[in-house]
Design a protein around this nucleic acid. Sequence first.
DNA 1: CCCGGCATCAATCAAAAGGTTGAACTCCGC
DNA 2: GCGGAGTTCAACCTTTTGATTGATGCCGGG
Lengths: 212, 212
Amino acid sequence: MSGAVIRLLLADDHPVVRAGLRAVLEGEPDFAIVAEAATAERAVELAAAGGVDVVLMDLQFGPGSAMNGAQATAEITARAGAPRVLVVTTYDTDADTLPALEAGATGYLLKDAPPEHLAQAVRAAAAGRSALAPSVADRLLERMRTPAAALSARETEVLGLVADGLTNQQISQRLHLSQATVKSHLVHIYTKLGVDSRTAAVRAARGRGLIR
Amino acid sequence: MSGAVIRLLLADDHPVVRAGLRAVLEGEPDFAIVAEAATAERAVELAAAGGVDVVLMDLQFGPGSAMNGAQATAEITARAGAPRVLVVTTYDTDADTLPALEAGATGYLLKDAPPEHLAQAVRAAAAGRSALAPSVADRLLERMRTPAAALSARETEVLGLVADGLTNQQISQRLHLSQATVKSHLVHIYTKLGVDSRTAAVRAARGRGLIR
DNA sequence: CCCGGCATCAATCAAAAGGTTGAACTCCGC
DNA sequence: GCGGAGTTCAACCTTTTGATTGATGCCGGG
């Protein structure tokens, strides 16, 4: 989008992590860190202002801000001529990766990635190519091979509350349903996940990253 | 313990975070970063080898290593002439802070702390003074003021399994107890927390950071 | 040295929650 | 417009929970 230099925006609420990214990336001659954002909102602003090729985006933005990294990613990539967004986070579950990728992230890296991978991923993102952490790529492929076990929105909602320790009755009240309906959803969830109890369902769903 | 220079060991499994800490602390003329460790085990080794005044210790060490930061802290501080351990982590709940402090950590900071605080905390730790993040200090004082609701070790253990969705029977098997004992613990937990159901207990305990 | 808190267990019982089966309705795609 | 998936519900039975009562051994502080 620009000349030879890739202009970067670092979006992370942790000063230490920003400094770390800066330290790791600053050495690359073809990179220029042009801005930093400590909140998701600020990242959206700065990205919209232009002059940025790649945004390094964290997903978690502390209790301070209302927006998370996935939402910010969606906002940034929505407009034309938007910079690429490369998610760099600690979390490695479907519940994190899928929303981020759906929101338009070009890549998804984990913070424990070695610095070289980071730089390569940034160049890939700048060129429009996607860069995924191996574990993320694995799970995406896995998901392709296993089209099964896709819970409906309602089922996911119910299962999320189950995971929070709510009883069927509490769930029914929260969702304005009868207990019967909640139980019915659970049966379908059990079938889809191949389990036969709520705790096993929560385990299975956690394992596959269906819920947080 | 040494001259004017404070010798630091950085223990964190994330290269980016290590680089960030290095970038933030390296500028201080009275600091010298003498080693880095990507695993808790390695941190223990390096700390035991001597030549270190303060260890900056993460609590979470990825699925790769068997030891966590709190355990490593305990091992490091166990021996005489050990360096001070300053915990620097993302997690801010009683379930994290208390074990770390009990393990002998001199301080507890959050990764979102501003760089100045970090440097001050390191100097405090080197001098043997404790340095706590404001939120951690608040909760410790809160705990002093509220001697209530202190669950015993066994009770916390049981409640943790309850939070994982296990039934009383499963808990009894896991802990090699009778169901009667598990129920007995639960009754005590309910009394202490002022609730009257397992899910409410989990909520309450989560709210107070008693469990993760 | 005795008391209180902690951990352990037993037995019983009513209430709550969980799981199963079967069924109606809507919406969407083919 | 037929069929399937998703959402909703009822009735029924089983399992789990929570309340209660009561008892034992251990350990540490006053």
